[in-house]
Computed example of a mutant assay.
Amino acid sequence: MAATILDVARLAKVSAGTVSRVLHKHPGVSDENRERVLDAIKTLDYSPRQRKASMCDLNPLEDKNVLLLLLGMDPSLANLPVVTAAIDGIEQSLINLNANLLIANLPTLDQFPEEFDRKRIDGVILKGALQGDLAGQVNPELVKRVQELPAVWVLGRPEGMTGDVVQVDDVRVGKLAAEHLISCGHRHLAFLSPKPSQVSIQRRQASFTFYAQQAGATVNSYLGNEQDWTFPSPAVDHCEWVDDLVERLLNTHPRPTAMFTPDDSTGTTVARTLSARNLKAGEDISLMSCNNEQKILEKIQPSLTTIDVHAADIGCRAVDQLAWRIAHPAQPNVDISYEPTLVTGSSVATLDHCAIA
C-alpha cells in the first residue's frame, strides 16, 4: 500500500499540517522539521501524485466538518494558556488539512450543541473538565451523538468517557519533578493541589510520590476538598483556594524544603500566597509546577521552574489522530501520551541555599 501524508507525519514525528506546509514550500517550518519531513518522504517513497485519484485516503479530513467541544469548563479554565495553545494547534492543523472547524463551548453539562442540527459533523475533538463526574452529568443525547462519530479527547479524557485521547505523559511529568528536586538536594518534599480528584493531577501526584520515595525522599500531600468543586470547573487562580493548604504545609515539622504543584495556575497562586506571608520561592522554600504557561509565569518572580507539556503539539497530534480514526473506524480506542520536558527557572534552590524551618 502506498504511503499517505499521515504515514509521513508519524515517521517524521510532526503533525500532518507540517508535512502539508513542507510539500507546499510554506516558509513557516523550522529547518529541523523540514529535514525530518523530507527524510521521511524519501524513506517512504511518498508522493501526493501516486494517490491522486483517492484524495480522501491521502487526507481523510479534506472538506470535513470537525466540531471542537469544550465541556464543563468555566471561562477561567477554558482560557488558560495550556488550553488555548492546544486549541491553536488544532485550528492550525485543520486549516492546513483543508477542514472546517466549528467550536461549541458548553460550561453547563445539560446543554446540547446546536452545531449538530445546523451542520453535518464528520468528527469531534473534545476538551473536558477532568475534575468531578463529567460522565455522569453530561447530556445523554450528546454522549450518544459523540459515540456515533470519530472522536478524540485532547489534554486528557474524563473518567467514564470513551474515545481516543492525546494527552500529556503525566507519569513522566511526576518523574521529572521528583528527579529535579532530588537532584537539587531535597529529601523532604510536598505535593500541593486544591483539586483532589482531577484525573491528570492524580496521575502526576502518584508518579511524583512513587519516584520520590524510590529515591529515598519523603512526600507529604496537601489536597483540597472534593465538595469545593462543581461544574463549570474553574481554574485555580484565587489565593483562598490554596491558603489553607499552604498554611498546613508551613506548619508541618519538619517542613518540606520543596513542593511540586501540578499546574502553573496553582504554582503561581501558591507563589503569591507565600509572598503574602513574606516568604519567597527559591529562598524560603523551593517551588515548581507544570504546563509552561508563559502568560501566567511571566507575572511571577523569581521565574518558576516548570515542565513544558507542549500543548500546541498535542493539539496538532489530536487532529492527526482524528484523521486516523476516520480512516480506521473499527479499531480499538487509542491512548497517546506526549513527552514533556523540564524548563528550569530560579524557584528551585539547592538544599544548601534553601531555608529549612
Rank of each mutant, 00 (worst) to 15 (best):
I314G: 02
E115G: 00
G72D: 08
A323F: 06
M259A: 11
L80K: 10
T305M: 07
A3V: 01
P27Y: 01
F210G: 00
M259F: 10
V146M: 13
N105K: 12
D45Q: 08
A212D: 03
R21F: 09
A9V: 00
I103Q: 02
Q205W: 09
R187I: 07
P234G: 06
P262I: 06
K280M: 11
H24D: 05
S193L: 06
L38W: 14
S76G: 14
D122P: 03
Q111G: 05
S303I: 05
G17R: 11
M55W: 12
L287S: 03
D74A: 14
P75G: 11
H238K: 14
D284N: 10
S337V: 13
V199R: 15
M55T: 12
N139Q: 01
V152R: 06
I103H: 01
A12P: 05
P75Q: 08
M73F: 00
L130D: 00
L149R: 01
R36D: 03
A9C: 03
K299Y: 15
L38K: 14
P254H: 09
E293L: 08
Q50W: 13
I5C: 13
P150W: 00
S221R: 12
H26N: 13
V319R: 06
R49H: 11
L77Q: 10
Q213K: 08
D122S: 02
P196L: 05
D237Q: 10
K144A: 08
G345V: 01
S30K: 04
D63E: 15
D117R: 07
S286A: 10
A99R: 00
N79M: 13
A357T: 10
L101T: 02
L297T: 01
K25E: 12
I285Y: 06
D352M: 07
A212V: 02
E159K: 08
L58D: 15
C239N: 10
Q321E: 15
E148S: 05
T18V: 13
K280R: 15
L67E: 03
A327M: 08
T350V: 12
L155S: 12
L106M: 09
D74F: 14
L94H: 00
E293R: 11
